[in-house]
Design a protein around this nucleic acid. Sequence first.
DNA 1: TTGTAGGCGTTATCAG
DNA 2: CTGATAACGCCTACAA
Lengths: 350, 350
Amino acid sequence: MRTPSAPVEGSGNVRSKATIYDIAKAAGVNPSTVSRALNNPGRVSAKTQKAVRDAAEELQFQMNPYARALGTGRTETLGLILTDITNPTFFDMIRAAQSTAITRNYTMMIAESAESPATELKAALRMQATVDGLILASPRMDDDNIRILAATKPMVVVNREVEGVSCVVPDVNGGIRAAIRVLAEQGHRKIAYLAGPTQSWMSDRRWEGVQDASAWSRLETVKLETGKPTVDGGRRVAREVLSSGATAVMAYNDLLAIGLMQELQAAGVVVPDHISIVGFDNIFGADFTTPPLTTVRSPLATCGTTAASLLLDKLDREAEDQPSLVHVDTELILRGSSGRLLAAAAQTAH
Amino acid sequence: MRTPSAPVEGSGNVRSKATIYDIAKAAGVNPSTVSRALNNPGRVSAKTQKAVRDAAEELQFQMNPYARALGTGRTETLGLILTDITNPTFFDMIRAAQSTAITRNYTMMIAESAESPATELKAALRMQATVDGLILASPRMDDDNIRILAATKPMVVVNREVEGVSCVVPDVNGGIRAAIRVLAEQGHRKIAYLAGPTQSWMSDRRWEGVQDASAWSRLETVKLETGKPTVDGGRRVAREVLSSGATAVMAYNDLLAIGLMQELQAAGVVVPDHISIVGFDNIFGADFTTPPLTTVRSPLATCGTTAASLLLDKLDREAEDQPSLVHVDTELILRGSSGRLLAAAAQTAH
DNA sequence: TTGTAGGCGTTATCAG
DNA sequence: CTGATAACGCCTACAA
């Protein structure tokens, strides 16, 4: 009826793939019983249970996830899509999401979009076929596409708010207000915001936050566009920062902030005496710089954990639950790259 | 014969899963023809081709990878297993591997072992069931297990040499010799090596390299054990470094080096006047420190690309090819954390 | 060039 | 409690 098809060597070559059929034969039961014994421990007699387990052990049985997925549609796999794997901003989140997934016996797949909405959508579509649920981190595609995806399979969005979809979003205003307040007290009057990618929802939120808080403190603001939100991108915008007349800079992320600081320092500008710099995210290495970087910490690790948990809960419930919106707080981490403006120095800088 | 089972709404609800059967119906052909049209473009008439493609497009067809995998055993997926996702050492490698995989239309899955040989083996076993091939980065399990895994499915090991398995390994000696030579010229006489994880093959190679090069330059060496190869691990070993009498330190990796430097500086030790510090890997942020970190650069990005290519080639060939061993060169990146030993300072330090 | 039929490994649904 | 049997979606001889 069923050909084992194994090119059997005489030796105890226990290589490769034993199926539940092999176990069934070894344990003297029916394949379906094996399946039950392995999955619903309790719905099978104790001795059968043991026989099956032993045989499985003996044959080094490894379930074939594809065969299972084909029937059940479930793969015990989560997908995580982000804009740039190498962006340290995501490290904590990846790690956190990964480990909570593992804890619940799920595997995680990662893909990146290279900041392109199209690539992102394609990656998401492809992943949808493979995973039980998806986490979209800082997605660049438009709301409608996100909702379409969310309608297909459970999904959680991080770092962006989308109507009708579960989201985990840092509330940037707390951290920003603290930062602006401090900058104002230190004598700054004009703040430059280094914008993130055009498609970035979060960059807009941060810019809004900066404007609001600045208005409150009667500070002037100016928005400077940048290319990619990387160290290099920060370097490139240094000249523009200098000519903007701003004495303090809030960057879309730490990478930009660090790049800017490096370039300014190379040009003889003293941080923070001439210009104060504040980043976002508190990435790994943000405290390695001289001076160490003042930054608004987004608890990305918390976001990762929360997102994964939310998603896994959805999967467990299997029900059409309400989309939830989780806000996590941000805080200012005051370090050396921001400080009181030295009037004399300020003049030198221009 | 086959129940579409779709709870068909009247509307144009194109949700979820269209199968080749749906396409077949829409295009007025047999499912097998659809399969052919989609996979072997050319073995089907032009007009059928078009009809099928159009229908697929229309129905937003997404192939079910599991169904395909079940039959063919191939999933177009690569697995990458590493010891610690958050270790920046791997970032470049992950990225490089990922993007070469994508280029060849493969997806990549990532898992981590938390530095534990047992976890690692388990993760590898689990992944084997899911992926077409595996990349093991800095594996901690023993050679035999690696060979067993490699016998099951195509595999490439990075950062370690295993007899009979394809490996991509940085040749540390070039970089180490350069480092030791410079240190010797700068007046150092005793070098401390901060060891990596006990299970780390690469840590042993680096220690050997340090010993060899030191012997050549008639320098004394001492090996100091550390806990986890992290910034924190580096901090913890600072006291021991001071009491070792060494004036220069080579750390297993940059993380350790940075942690050590931070702790020493906090204790008033001046780097490099009192103690020179050299790291390994040239991770992101290694040049953020003050002084910036001197380090032996391992071209991990190259390793990632090479490993992925090797693996994909294996998969293409499908043949039992010879295991290859690729060496990539390392180089010394001389920055500020190493330098001439100041005699006066040296005395102060003890 | 295209259709038919069987199988991939597992789970689910029925009987027994 | 356990056995038989039919899907799950796709691929691939083989036949037409």
